[in-house]
Design a protein around this nucleic acid. Structure first.
Lengths: 235, 235
DNA sequence: TGTACATCAGTGAACGCGCGTTCACTGATGTAC
DNA sequence: TGTACATCAGTGAACGCGCGTTCACTGATGTAC
C-alpha cells in the first residue's frame, strides 16, 4: 500500500484527469476527433476552460493520452485472450481467439479503434512509443506460428520479415523469444498478415462500408483467419 | 459535337468548378478533411468567399462531389485494369492485376483513398449512391471467380453471400451476369474477401502503420491475394 | 443590327460561432518548523 | 498545536483566429424580338 499511498490532492487530481478523458472519449464517439474540444469538456466537468490546463498541457497532449490508453487497452485485451486459452488449444483456435478479441474490442468501441487505426489526425504527430504499443498488440500472435509451414503465396512475406529481423536487432530481440522454437521470420509474417486481415475486415465493419451488404464481420474475419491458418498449415 | 456544345459561360463555369475542386483536393492532401475550407479555397482561386456559393451549395456539397469523383475514378482504374488484361490471363493473374490497380490508385493519392475508405467524416452523411459506386469498384472482381472451388475456410462467407443474393433481388441482378457461368454466391464472396484484403494492406500502408517495419505493401497485398486465389483454388 | 430585359458571376459588409490558449489574480490545501 | 510559507486548483477577462453562411447590391453576359 505504501507505494500506492496518495495525498488526497493527488487522488483528486487523478479523478479529475480520468473524468476529463471520459468526456473526451464521449465526444470522440459522437463526433470524431474534431469534436474533442477543451472548452466543451470544461463545461461538462464543471470547470472553466483554462482550468483544464492544470491537467493537460494542450489539446494534443490530451489526444496523445487517449491514443496511448487505447493501445494499452487493446494490447491488454489481446494478452488476456491469449492467457485464457485452454492449454491444449490448436494454433488455429488460438489464432481465432486472438483475432476475435481484437475484433470484439474494436466493435465495442469503434471510436477508439478508429483513433488508433483510422485516418491519421492531420497535423498531429503520434508519440514515438506508438511502435512499441503496436508491438504489444502483435506479440501474442507470434507463438501461434510455431512450426508453421508457409505456403508459396505467403513465402515472400516470410522472406521479407526474416530480412527485417536480421537487419534490426531490436526487432529480432523482441520477436525471437516469442517465436517459440520457430523461425521469427515465419512468426512475424504470420502476425503481420493477421494484423492486415483484422484491419481489413474490422475496418470495413467499423466504418460501415458494407452496411446492408448482408455479411457480418465475424464470418468474414473468421474466414480470413482460417485461410491464414491454411496458408501456414496450422492445425 | 452538338451535345457537347456549351456556351462560353457554361464552359467557364465548369472550369471554375474544376479549379475549386482541385484546390480542395490539395487542401485535403495537406491537412485532411478538416483542412478543406471554403474561405481559403476562395482566396486561392482569386474569388471572394461568398462567390463560391455560385458553384457549390455548401461545404458538404463540395465534399460530396469529391467523394463521388474519387469513387468513379477508382472504379475507372479497376475497370481499365480489367480491360487491359491479356486474353488468356489466369484467374490468379487477373486477381493480382485488379488488386494491384486498386493499390496503385490508393498509394498514388492516399488522401482520396482515405476520403473513401477512411474514418467517416463526423456529421457528414454520405450520398445514397455511394453503394452503387462501391459496386462499380467491385464489379470487375466477380468474373474472376468463375469455376472457383472455395475452401472450407471461406465457405461460410459463400453461404452468406448466396443467402444475400437470394434475399436482395437488386444484388442478384447485378451479380449474376458478372459471375460468368458460376454461382454468384462464390463470386460475391471472392470479391468481398478481395476487398477486405485490399482494405487491410492498403490501409496499413496508407496510414503509415507499419512504417519502418520492413515490409512493403506490394509484397503484403500480393501474398494476401495469392492466398485468396489458393482459398478458391484458382489457377 | 439594336434595344429591353433576364440571368448570372461576383462583391463587401456583416453575423455569430466556438475554438485553443495566455494572463494576472484569488483562495484553498498542504508542508516545515 | 500554531504559525509562516509554498504549492496548487481554479477563476474571469481577454486575444486572435478562421470558419460557414446570408444579404443586398453592382456589373457583365446572354437572349428574345
Amino acid at each position: 500500500m505504501a507505494g500506492t499511498a496518495q495525498s488526497p490532492r493527488a487522488r483528486y487530481r487523478e479523478q479529475t484527469r480520468a473524468e476529463i478523458k471520459e468526456i473526451a472519449l464521449r465526444q470522440l464517439a459522437e463526433g470524431g476527433t474534431a469534436a474533442v474540444a477543451l472548452t466543451r469538456i470544461a463545461k461538462e466537468v464543471g470547470l472553466s476552460g483554462p482550468a483544464l490546463y492544470r491537467y493537460f498541457d494542450s489539446r494534443d497532449a490530451l489526444l496523445t493520452d487517449l491514443i496511448r490508453d487505447a493501445y494499452a487497452d487493446l494490447a491488454a485485451a489481446v494478452s488476456q485472450a491469449a492467457d485464457s486459452l485452454p492449454p491444449g488449444a490448436s494454433p488455429r483456435a488460438r489464432l481465432r481467439a486472438l483475432a476475435g478479441s481484437c475484433r470484439g474490442w474494436a466493435i465495442a468501441q469503434p471510436h477508439r479503434y478508429l483513433l488508433i487505426e483510422g485516418t491519421p489526425v492531420p497535423g498531429y504527430a503520434a508519440p514515438p512509443d506508438t511502435l512499441d504499443s503496436a508491438r504489444a498488440v502483435l506479440g501474442p500472435f507470434l507463438p501461434v506460428f510455431e512450426g508453421a509451414a508457409p505456403s508459396a503465396a505467403v513465402r515472400p512475406v516470410v522472406e521479407q520479415m526474416t530480412a527485417w529481423a536480421e537487419a534490426d536487432a531490436a526487432v529480432a530481440q523482441w520477436a525471437r523469444p516469442r517465436a517459440a522454437g520457430g523461425s521469427e521470420g515465419v512468426a512475424l509474417a504470420g502476425a503481420v498478415l493477421a494484423w492486415a486481415h483484422m484491419h481489413g475486415s474490422i475496418g470495413l465493419e467499423v466504418s460501415g462500408q458494407f452496411n446492408g451488404m448482408g455479411h457480418d464481420g465475424d464470418t468474414l474475419l473468421t474466414a480470413q483467419i482460417d485461410s491464414l491458418a491454411d496458408a501456414f498449415s496450422l492445425d
